[in-house]
Design a protein around this nucleic acid. Structure first.
Length: 418
RNA sequence: GCGAGCGUAGCCAAGAGGCCUAAGGCGCCUGUCUGUGGCACAGGAGAUCACGGGUUCGAAUCCCGUCGCUCGCCCCA
């Protein structure tokens, strides 16, 4: 027997309501902020991600699904959502559109990792990007959108963390300070952090080991080493968030694992934070477009994992509406009713209503049971008697009442309803 | 890549060397109710006890290996 590959999952019909709920809320919100949907390919030139996400990152080093296609091109299954959107912006000359360009997306994301709670090799993200505006008001807008989305979904026990990690001019000096701070305390570092010291010093800050955490509290803070422009950006962002009454916490240890971030970074986590708990993460990436060969174009965005959102919806007991069942099940009794039942079901659908045709191979009782189990509100009953008289029985399953009416009249009522 | 736990019908599971031709529950099908659902009762289908090897007179049960799943670390949505 075949199984779904490790780290992948089937999203079965009974689970779809969560996905559809999240999608409809997210779309409504994104549209109200003026974002347009973009769908980019599932795979891209491998170089796109190496260039944008960064050589030294875990994603590029060991998590990408990269393969040579039959034509000899090296392609990669999308490991994150931002780079493809930036590529599309450049490829389609979107700098000619009114700036900034606001876009949102839903897409599958692939990373070769060991799966665990809230982590998959294929997962799905909702994300937004705003390209072409350096103003901190845009940072605030994106964060507000993320915050409102969580609330719109019914996730209210959440915390927003923000930080500024400076831009590419001011960061090297800060990183240097951080390195010397930790180097002086090398003896007390955990094994992982000793390795990280050279590779990615920023990551030392969010180590979970107790001793390292304590050191992180005392470590030099990026916000104390911002250049004047970045500092101004940071201060304005905070005042904008306050003005919008969005409760944020400055987390000096918040850095992020992708190289392209600059200045603003942020995350949203549920109150009861577990290991893989971040349900939304993003930040500004002003240098990215240049990295990809475009003219300097500022950008900011976030990604949010649909599987993690679903997990949290269930955990916090949010009531998600059921997807609508068809209004009618056409039950039929006896061979003579088979064809008329098929025709009737077809007519109901043409009139714009939903109908399931019962195969009629079992007793009426069984067909009624099926209608009940499927949550169908009305059963249309068709047997020899009804056909002889040109009538149908319409049974209301909720009230357990039924009426016999001429078929033509029934179809007419549908036409006026839909 | 590293560490831990777990694999018995579609799902949840009892069982801990012979009483297992594997309990029970959910779900599914049928009937009680010859053309009328939910409830109840009765019956039925559905399991190479993850796979391979070993120990033993005898293995779902003990040992070894393999595979798979889950959880944690790393990293991230």
């Amino acid at each position: 027997m075949f199984q779904a590959p490790r780290g992948t999952a089937d999203l079965l019909p009974e689970e779809q309501k969560y996905r559809r709920y999240i999608e409809s809320r997210a779309v409504a919100l994104a549209q109200s902020y003026g974002y347009g949907r973009i769908d980019s390919p599932v795979f891209e030139d491998a170089g796109l991600f190496v260039r944008s996400v960064g050589e030294g990152t875990d994603i590029v080093e060991k998590e990408m699904y990269t393969f040579e296609d039959r034509g000899g091109d090296l392609v990669t299954l999308r490991p994150e959502g931002t780079a493809p959107v930036c590529r599309a912006y450049l490829e389609h000359g979107m700098h000619n559109l009114p700036q900034p360009v606001r876009m949102y997306y839903f897409c599958p994301v692939f990373r070769y990792e060991r799966p665990q709670a809230g982590r998959f090799r294929q997962h799905h993200q909702f994300g937004v990007e705003v390209l072409g505006d350096p103003n901190p008001a845009v940072d605030a807008e994106v964060i507000e959108l993320a915050w409102r989305l969580m609330h719109s979904l019914g996730l209210t026990d959440i915390r927003l963390f923000v930080n500024s990690i400076g831009d590419k001019e001011s960061r090297p000096a800060y990183v240097q300070q951080l390195k010397s701070y930790y180097s002086e305390r090398y003896e007390n570092l955990c094994g992982d952090c000793r390795n990280r010291l050279d590779r990615n010093p920023l990551r030392l800050l969010d180590c979970k080991v107790l001793g390292c955490r304590a050191m992180g509290e005392e470590a030099p803070r990026s916000v104390d080493h911002l250049d004047p422009d970045s500092l101004d950006h940071w201060e304005r962002l905070k005042s904008y968030l306050s003005a919008m009454q969005i409760p944020f916490e400055v987390d000096h240890r918040l850095v992020r694992g992708l190289d392209y971030y600059s200045r603003t970074v942020f995350e949203i986590q549920p109150e009861e934070a577990g290991a893989q708990s971040t349900i939304c993460g993003g930040g500004r990436y002003d240098g990215l477009m240049e990295q990809l060969g475009g003219r300097p174009t500022p950008g900011i965005g976030f990604g949010s994992g649909l599987e993690r959102l679903t997990l949290n919806l269930k955990r916090s007991g949010v009531e998600v509406p059921d997807l609508p069942a068809p209004s009618y099940l056409v039950a039929n009794v006896g061979d003579a009713a088979r064809l008329p039942a098929l025709e009737l079901a077809s007519r109901i659908r043409q009139a714009g209503a939903g109908a399931i045709l019962s195969s009629g191979t079992r007793a009426l009782r069984g067909q009624m049971r099926q209608a009940n189990a499927l949550g169908i509100p009305y059963v249309v009953i068709l047997g020899d008697d009804e056909i002889g008289r040109g009538e149908v029985v319409i049974r209301d399953m909720e009230t357990s009442t039924q009426q016999t009416i001429p078929t033509a009249e029934f179809l007419q009522s549908l036409a006026s309803d839909y």
